[in-house]
Design a protein around this nucleic acid. Sequence first.
RNA 1: GCGCCCAUAGCUCAGCUGGAUAGAGCAACGGUUUUCUAAACCGUAGGUCUUAGGUUCGAAUCCUAAUGGGCGUACCA
Length: 592
Amino acid sequence: MTIENTIAEHIQKAVSVLYQSEIGIDSIVIQETRKEFEGQVTVVTFPFTRLSKKTPEQTGAEIGEYLKEHIQEVTAFNVIKGFLNLSISDSYWIDQLLNNVLNEGFGQFPANGKRVMVEYSSPNTNKPLHLGHVRNNLLGYSVAEILSANGYEVIKVNLVNDRGIHICKSMLAWQLFGNGETPESSGLKGDHLVGKYYVIFDQEYKKQVAELVEEGQTEDNGKKNAPVIRQAQEMLLDWEAGDPAVIALWSMMNSWVYAGFEQTYNQLGVDFAKYYYESDTYLLGKDIIDEGLDKGVFFEKEDGSVWIDLTEDGLDQKLVLRANGTSVYITQDLGTAQLKYDDFKVDKSIYVVGNEQDYHFKVLFLILQKLGKPWAKGLYHLSYGMVDLPSGKMKSREGTVVDADELMDDMIRTAQERTEELGKVDGFSEAEKADLYNMIGLGALKFFLLKVEPKKRLLFDPNESIDFQGHTGPFIQYTHARIRSVLAKADYKTRISSNHSLELTILERELIVNLSKYPGVISAAAMEYSPAHIANYVFELAKLFNKFYHEESILKAEDTSVRNFRLDLASACAVTINKGMALLGIRVPARM
RNA sequence: GCGCCCAUAGCUCAGCUGGAUAGAGCAACGGUUUUCUAAACCGUAGGUCUUAGGUUCGAAUCCUAAUGGGCGUACCA
């Protein structure tokens, strides 16, 4: 039972006793007291004035008096305009710290018996990952961690788009221009090698289109008739027909890509319980089409194509099966959704996919609901904004992308330079240094991407390096290292204070109030699928600690009980920072 | 055309279900190190919360419309 709940309940009683009225728990607004006023918890009294028929000030005073009398922890109150500010006893806050915040499981909710799937990453196998994928991966990973902290059993899956015309483009270009180049022979990471031929294909394609236009064809015809695109289309047909040579080439090039992706995923620190491959799932969904026709959810047009009419739901008519009986994107997604459910019987399923597919998922989920799938209500599209460059959209084909591997390497290198400038690595082994640079570089990158609300688009300027100071990952990592350094000096191991009757300083109290908010932040982050809440919370905590650290000495506190208490408090901050950052996939060092 | 999303300080962003004088970071200017790590801390300056209406005791927050930007509206994925 939190203090807010206790207060809310007593307010109901107070209203009943004082004004002979009932008030719903929802209309009681309790918030944190603003710093410039005395107290920690504030009740907004405007909603009660209707019942009391008195001024907000009088009402506040009467309720404040009642609360002070009936709740032990409420030691004092003041009323300013319509706001009743309550002071909660120091012993309550100290107890919170020692018996709640410092507990092992603080911020980890007990298992709720529910299972949730998070699908993220979903790369194409014709090119390496870029910054947009990085945002996707970090979001997916973090949301999975957050749900896990909220008591869900989480299954992370990756649906790999390993077939289709785009892969054939890379394959064809490699056949035509590759001269048998391999990752070994070229020294290139497999995904980068394949991506290189994707770009070469596009260059060749454009050249051929230009030639055809030169010869008098229209732009559109040129695009259709260019020999390379024809060849790529043929290759796709051969692939679907199971042509052994094409399949062998496809397998080989895909294996290069997977080796490359694995490295990138390792570096990013993300993982998956299961991979789904579109080469296995692209034919799924036909039985769902039959089911939908039987149920009258779908209808067939004269040419044999199958549609759903969503005009009553404010959407359009949507094709779900071509006239020739082949699938479209949504057909296989219908099938894959069923497959994923059958595999794991999940209560919720999160799709981490960019916002350009908002309409697709709206339609997908609506169709599954209309089909009466009971699990359809657990589907959620975690839609996030594009990562744009100052020059506009990233395009792999044209090579205007921020490459994931290069960016991570850059960040780590910058971390190294910064750290060496500051001369902070005395006594580190080479391996420890490498690990530290990795932690800081990736910490900066991950925090940069995760601190922004997912649905907002993100602007990334490659010419302005990501900061290491201020509202950043390294700032928080530094705060953690600072605390650990103090704890190490004191040879601190575990909770040591027992004195509950200390008088707290303002900053100590503020810190505990802040720490107490952590579980609420975790559940809000899960509710909204937003790591940004956690990022901003941890930043606030770190900032507050730094202020405290600067103004009040821990090791040289005025007496032992204060010193021990501050060590516990500092430790609680370090642990909470660590936990919060872990939910973002960011590691924190003990020294930096 | 229609639909969805976004708009807060010079820049990048917070602002929870409507609540007190709208907050951080960066950049600018000034200060703090014989004292637990200065990747830190303190201060100054910077805002008609895109605009216009509406609801309310009270609106950055909710509703309507407009403007600007992004995305979608494929028998591509």
